[in-house]
Design a binder for these strands. Structure first.
Lengths: 119, 119
DNA sequence: TCAATATTTCAATTATATATGAAACATGGA
DNA sequence: TCCATGTTTCATATATAATTGAAATATTGA
């Protein structure tokens, strides 16, 4: 990962509203949440929310899909995991401090949760 | 961890100079680096560097200790690991996506590297 | 004590990010 | 078609962060 990518992601997350939004989406899992639902959870005004969605999407941390008149946002777990890996990369110059156990969350396999076949 | 703590840390890291500084310190390990050395590595001017050190320290991500006329900065690995944990916390609402394997780096035990007993 | 080195502080300028409300756009249903 | 709902865009005002160079502080060794 290039440093610029990491900086963009970190500074996107470095804002109370956006971190709240992102965490709501992380907790929602790959299924995601409609924009309005996120606004409901976080209490952020629509226009602000849209602004922050754009920042997070630009950083590659969330994705959007349209479903009728709703826009469903979801966390991009690969991006999150890459970021975590980047931060600890080459920790201690590769000397033995503690073995790194990497990708922590939602990699490759979306949860086997029962979903009403709306797609 | 409180959201404000995480925001402060993330926004501290969300800047090219500070991320470069932090990564240099992560790679240096618990031993740390003198301020001047970090400036040398990153090419950041002294006054800027001091500004950014202060931001990182305020976020709890680095610590400073004085050694003669040098100031030695070091990454605070616990803070970093707490931050990583916070981001993935309650991923997918606790539903099985992938088991999280947590603290990745430099926890509890500093590296057993040979250090010339200067302390 | 004096000069050299290492780092921080300060003040001023410049740039960037954020919040806000009104208006625009898109979709779905009556 | 028309209205209600969901979301985004835009313009503006406000606040905050970053860079810079000069000066201040602290430590070391001559």
């Amino acid at each position: 990962m290039e440093i610029q990518t990491a900086v963009t992601a970190l500074s996107a997350l470095g804002h109370p509203s956006r971190l709240a939004v992102f965490r709501a989406l992380v907790q929602a899992g790959p299924v995601g949440l409609a924009a309005g639902k996120v606004g409901e959870i976080t209490g952020i005004a629509p226009s602000s929310l849209s602004f922050h969605f754009k920042e997070l999407a630009h950083a590659g941390l969330i994705s959007a899909r349209h479903e009728g008149r709703y826009v469903i946002y979801a966390a991009v777990f690969d991006a999150m995991n890459d970021l975590l890996t980047y931060l600890t990369d080459n920790c201690c110059g590769g000397n033995p401090c503690l073995p790194m156990s990497t990708p922590p969350c939602c990699v490759e396999s979306p949860p086997a949760t029962a979903q009403d076949g709306t797609e």
